[in-house]
């Protein structure tokens, strides 16, 4: 599978990603390092969604819930350190290792419970029940007065602490995010090619047949759902650190929609697609207004969504493979 051309391509991409902060510093655009971190974080989240969406065929319209739960774990633990109070008898913590691990575990648990319930349904009902659960959690956090309710939690202590790495430094933080992204990219490649991944994809293509073959379809789907939730939780934890701030907004249904857009934009059911989608989405969001300003369409700079909306429709209608699909079609590749 890994041919020489791909190997060269992957190596070049990784190197480029590693050099991002240096290049941006050289250009005098250091503040964009933060955008690069966001791309890595949202890439991770979109990748996790792609596991269930693209490979598992489960259209979850509530993936932001796990992103938000992971973020809130970090935010709440940090809040208690700042506040000096305890939570259910435990002290808060600013330690990255502990709070990120907890974020992963708790979002996995939530994904397990909600996934087990949601997977009783399928099709449109699955879309809607995942949406309903996400809305439920959204309103739960809105009503948590202790943690700022709708206003959310500001991490007054700043980012978490990691031994030997200063996360408050944007470049170091970027490298931490990038490490996670690359590690999980590798992990997902292995996962998708493993027996588990094969069964999952077979379930998407023909569930009845897999069931007839004696495969416990729901168990495989649930496992994928939990893995996706856990990784989204990690992404949420990272994003809480990036923004030093958590709010119910992280769980809003439009955020779930954003993650879906990233997956589709980049290329559903491909390994790298969601990351490219996240990059394209976030860069469009940042630069589309500027582009309109610079090219002499000042009306559009404030109303850039009037272009973004149709763009999205066009991608859905005519570029089904997303950016990755379009790119490989141009290269004449047929492996997907």
């Amino acid at each position: 599978m890994v041919n020489k051309r791909n190997l060269v391509f992957v190596t070049a991409a990784v190197l480029a990603a590693i050099l991002v902060p240096q290049v941006l510093t050289m250009l005098g655009e250091e503040y964009l390092i933060g955008t690069a971190s966001r791309i890595a974080i949202y890439g991770l989240a979109a990748m996790s969604l792609n596991l269930i969406l693209g490979y598992g065929g489960m259209v979850s319209f509530g993936h932001a819930a796990y992103f938000g739960v992971g973020a809130y774990v970090v935010g709440i633990l940090s809040f208690h350190v700042f506040d000096g109070s305890s939570i259910m008898g435990f002290q808060g913590t600013d330690a990255a290792v502990l709070s990120w691990l907890l974020a992963i575990v708790i979002s996995a648990l939530v994904a397990f419970v909600l996934g087990a319930l949601s997977l009783r349904t399928s099709g449109v009902y699955f879309i809607m029940i995942t949406l309903a659960f996400a809305q439920m959690l959204y309103f739960l956090f809105v009503s948590m007065e202790r943690y700022g309710g709708d206003d959310g939690v500001i991490m007054y202590n700043g980012r978490n602490s990691l031994p030997m790495v200063d996360l408050s430094d944007d470049t170091s933080f970027y490298y931490v995010c990038l490490t996670f992204l690359l590690a999980f990219l590798l992990l997902f490649v292995l996962l998708v090619r493993s027996r588990f991944g094969k069964v999952l994809q077979a379930c998407r293509q023909n569930e009845t047949r897999m069931r007839a073959l004696g495969c416990n379809v729901r168990r495989y789907k649930l496992a994928a759902f939990v893995i996706a939730g856990a990784v989204a939780g990690l992404a949420g934890a990272l994003n809480a650190n990036h923004a030093e701030y958590v709010s119910p907004d992280y769980l809003h249904w439009t955020k779930s929609g954003d993650l879906m857009i990233m997956v589709i934009l980049g290329g559903i059911g491909t390994i790298i697609g969601p990351v490219i989608g996240a990059a394209a989405f976030l860069l469009l969001e940042d630069f589309l207004p500027l582009l309109f300003d610079a090219t002499g369409f000042p009306t559009f700079k404030e109303h850039w969504r009037i272009v973004f909306g149709p763009l999205l429709i066009l991608v859905v209608l005519f570029a089904r493979g997303g950016l990755v699909g379009t790119f490989s079609a141009m290269r004449g590749d047929h492996e997907r």
Binding site: V59, F61, I127, G257, M260, I261, I264, R305, I306, F308, G309, P310, L311, L312, I313, V316, L317
Partner: peptide, 10 residues
């Protein structure tokens, strides 16, 4: 879902 989401934005 996505195409009609785009319609909302528009």
């Amino acid at each position: 879902v996505l195409a009609t989401f785009g319609l909302i934005l528009f």
